[in-house]
């Protein structure tokens, strides 16, 4: 990561901006959305270690590179899937949910139950904060 940041800083013009945008290290929440209401089903249990490591690497990089922090902001970012199959595929980006002790197995079971009971058009919404850090290369 640090090598990539160094290369990005190298190709930036003086006063150029380095923008880092990614989901903030917070557990995402999962909702079932129907035409009538949105119901919170549960919280994900992602491993946030890599996110915290990325934050630390960025902080270390700033201290040694010719960059200064300009600002950091957060916003809410939602993603939607239209079927249980797609939700399973999304969870599999994090782990194999078929494993009996997988942290997301119970969440998946709750979503499946809610999906079965709900009527009409249904969507699964995964929501969590998105964070942006902006650094500026010194002239």
């Amino acid at each position: 990561m640090v090598h990539a940041l160094e290369e990005a800083a190298r190709v930036l013009k003086p006063n150029g901006l380095l923008v880092e945008l990614r989901p903030a290290p917070r557990h995402r929440r999962v909702w079932l959305v129907t035409s009538e209401r949105s119901a919170l089903i549960g919280r994900m249990h992602e491993d946030l270690g890599p996110d915290h490591a990325a934050d630390a690497a960025l902080a270390r990089f700033m201290t040694r590179a010719q960059l200064r922090a300009r600002f950091r902001r957060r916003t809410v970012c939602n993603r939607y899937v239209d079927s249980l199959k797609e939700f399973r595929e999304f969870l599999e980006e994090f782990e194999d949910c078929r494993h009996p002790t997988a942290p997301h197995r119970r969440l998946l079971e709750r979503v499946e139950r809610a999906w079965t009971v709900a009527k009409g058009r249904r969507r699964i919404m995964i929501t969590g904060p998105l964070q942006m850090t902006v650094l500026q290369k010194l002239a």
Partner: peptide, 8 residues
Amino acid sequence: ETFDIAIF
């Protein structure tokens, strides 16, 4: 010094 903005 090619780019005005680099984004990850």
